[in-house]
Each structure stands twice: as structure tokens, then as C-alpha cells.
Write a protein that binds this DNA or RNA. Structure first.
Lengths: 208, 208
DNA sequence: AATCTTTGATTGAATGACCAAACAATTTGG
DNA sequence: CCAAATTGTTTGGTCATTCAATCAAAGATT
């Protein structure tokens, strides 16, 4: 049952990498967790890097599924008939939902970011990871902007980068300090965003 | 000249850690960069972790100095006579200025975040690092809120967490992809924040 | 049906390299 | 002469990756 074996190794990699971190996890630890000889892990995955990427993709699957069940796909187009503001609101709700269920994925992802700082193969995976998610936020942002009384000075991409960045930063604070109230922070981000999106037209804007 | 030696080691640690990353840097590499025997690095710093923390604190010094010269201190009180909105605007300008000068510090900091995920000693340094900066943003936020026509639902701490998080997330995107337009993203964050802070009083807010 | 063959899956030990930390020995400066 | 500074080696352990050998199952051949 070769397929099940590969799956078992990826699954063991996920658990082990979450528990101990990339640099503190040895290939033989993952193999042991999978109940398999060290060599077999290399039979299926040439390098530890490949296993890290596979583990993250594997761990993202349920999240992707949850989004698609909510009618959203990371890379697909946004349904044109839907209210963009409703989509934005739903995005923040989903972001809060992630907090409850995907602690392990956060750890793994942030670990990947750290490794990616000095590892080209992982760095490219990181760039793809970020780009996908930022583009997703940007699609919603564009739709919201289209409905604004006074369009913002900033581009949709820049706003999306700021919003995705905030979510990332909030997750980071949560991972680093479980007592941190990430829900409140996401609510604050949502309040700011909504206030911005619904602000009335002004003839002269203050500031220089 | 023991003091200069210690300084030389910290400086070498900074350069080496930025160039190669924590896990790819050996104590002997730092020692070599400092032109010193491996044992001497351990003479001044018991563990590699201590050296990482020291290198970051060392690298933060010029940044702190820049802030203090601008009349701001990370932990001190905010001058009561100043216009809070002006402080907020200046904060975003300083955030943009950091982009130009402190690339190495970003790398080191993000590396520290990664290491901190599974290393208690570093994790505590990370928590302190984040907490200091978030508290700084929160002080400005509190002052801004005091001047708002309609106070926000979210607390100043939650808003500060969202704003600091956004800055962090923007820096991350910049580090991972130098072509990323981080200035535009910070401008977008600033525009959102300012629009939020200056929004007019509303009797009934939409949504629910 | 019985035996040989091939191929992929799997094993576990070996390789070659690395490193943090400890330590004993030496130098320097007061 | 002493204590702090400094050296460079040793220790005791780590690990990713390789590899030769074994195993199982599916055909192929007789």
C-alpha cells in the first residue's frame, strides 16, 4: 500500500514538525513517528525541505475545503452576484474561525517563514503561499472599492497587503502569546476596514 | 581591551547571523568573523541564543536612537502637548523610513521569531520585543481615540495589535520579496487608519 | 501448478560531515 | 605573581543522506 505509506509519512511529518519545529526535527524522528525506516522517508521525499512543503500543503487542505464550502476559492474568481461587503465581513469571520482550529498550521507556517529566510527552496514556497493569499484578499478589496463613495488613494493591492499583513501579524502575536486576544484584534481590523469602506464622500480631505 | 572585544563579537554575530541565519551559523563562524578563537565567544556569551539576543538588541540601538531624537521613546510616556494625529502620521513615516535602513534587522528579527517558535529562551525575548512595540502603538492609539468624534467599538489595545500586526506583515512581505511595494502598503494602512480616526459621528451604524 | 524474474517497497546500518560546549593550556596586563 | 583574557583542541553528540541488502507481489516461463 504505497500510497497510504506516503500519506502516513506526510502526516507524521506534520505532527512532528509542529511539535518540535523544522530544525529540531530529524528525518529519523518523522520516520519513527510514521512507524517506518529512516530510508523510506527519503525514498518518497528526496529532502527534508520537500517534506516540509508537503506537510504544509497537506495541512492546508481542510482549510481550503472549508473555504470552498463557503463558496470561496483561493484562486478562482469571485462570484459577481454577491455583495462584496458581505464577502469582506465573511473573510474576517473565517479569519477568526481559523484561530480556533488551525493552531498547528500556524506554527508550521511561521516555521516555514523562518526557514525560508535563508533557504531558497523554502523561500519560493513562502512567496507562493503569501502571494496566493494576498491576491485573494485583493480580489475582495477590488470589489469593495468599486462600491465606495469616494475611491481610496491607495491601490487595491496595497490595501490587500496591509490587511493580509495585519491578519498575519495578529496570528503571530497569538502564536507567540496564547493569552493574546486575537479575536478582538481581528474585530478591530474589521471595524477599521468597514469604516474605511463605508466612509462618506468628502470634498476636501484633511492632512497634507 | 575586553569591552571592545565583546562588542566586536556582537557585531560579528550580527553580520554573520544576517548573512547566514541562526541555524546555519556556527559559533566558530561568528568567532572567525570577529577574528577571535571559538572559545572566546563562549567566554562572553554562554550560549548561541544569548548571542542572538545581544545581536538584535545591538542592532536596535540606532533605531531607538532615531526615535528618541524624534522625541519619542519606546517605553516612555507620550508628550501630552503634542497632537496625537501628528504622532500617528509620524509613526507611519518612521515605519517607511525603517524600510530603507534596517533590512538586516528585519532578517534578524524574523529569524528570531522563527527560532522562538520552539526555543523558550528566544520565545521570551520575542514576546518582550512584540509587547514593547505593541504597547508603543497602543499609547498613540489611545490618544487618537480620545479625539475621535465617535469612539470605536474596539479597544485601543486591539486596534494597536491590528496596526502593529499590519506593519509586521508588510515588512515580512518585503523581506520575502524585495520587489514588493511596502511603502504603498504602509501608505494604504495609514490612509485606512486616518479615515477611521477622522470618521464623522453616525447615529446608526450599518451592519450587524 | 511450480518456479523463475523483475520491480518497487522497505529496511537498517554506514558515511561523512557538522556543531555547541567544555576544557586545559597559554598569554597578557596590571 | 595573579587574575582575566584568549587560544585551539577535544568531546560527545548531532544529523541528512546514501547504500547495499531484503522483502513482497505480480508476471512471465516452463
Amino acid at each position: 500500500m504505497p500510497d497510504q505509506t506516503k500519506e502516513r509519512i506526510v502526516d507524521a511529518a506534520y505532527r512532528t514538525l509542529v511539535r518540535r519545529g523544522y530544525h529540531e526535527t530529524a528525518m529519523k524522528d518523522i520516520a519513527a513517528e510514521a512507524g517506518v525506516a529512516p530510508g523510506l522517508a527519503h525514498y518518497y521525499f528526496e529532502t527534508k525541505e520537500d517534506l516540509l512543503v508537503a506537510a504544509i500543503e497537506h495541512a492546508c487542505e481542510p482549510l481550503m475545503k472549508a473555504w470552498e464550502e463557503a463558496g470561496v476559492s483561493l484562486s478562482g474568481p469571485m462570484p459577481e452576484d454577491a455583495d462584496p461587503m458581505m464577502f469582506a465581513r465573511m473573510g474576517f469571520e473565517l479569519a477568526k474561525a481559523e484561530l480556533k482550529s488551525y493552531g498547528g498550521l500556524f506554527l508550521l507556517t511561521f516555521d516555514m517563514f523562518g526557514v525560508g529566510l535563508h533557504n531558497p527552496k523554502i523561500a519560493s514556497a513562502v512567496r507562493t503561499f503569501i502571494e496566493e493569499r494576498r491576491a485573494f484578499v485583493a480580489r475582495i478589496t477590488r470589489a469593495v472599492i468599486a462600491g465606495m463613495a469616494e475611491p481610496p488613494l491607495a491601490s487595491a493591492d496595497a490595501i490587500a497587503a496591509a490587511i493580509w499583513g495585519s491578519l498575519h501579524g495578529i496570528y503571530l502575536q497569538k502564536v507567540m502569546n496564547p493569552a493574546f486576544d486575537a479575536e478582538a484584534a481581528i474585530d478591530a481590523l474589521g471595524e477599521m476596514t468597514m469604516a474605511f469602506a463605508t466612509r462618506p464622500r468628502t470634498t476636501s480631505r484633511e492632512g497634507g
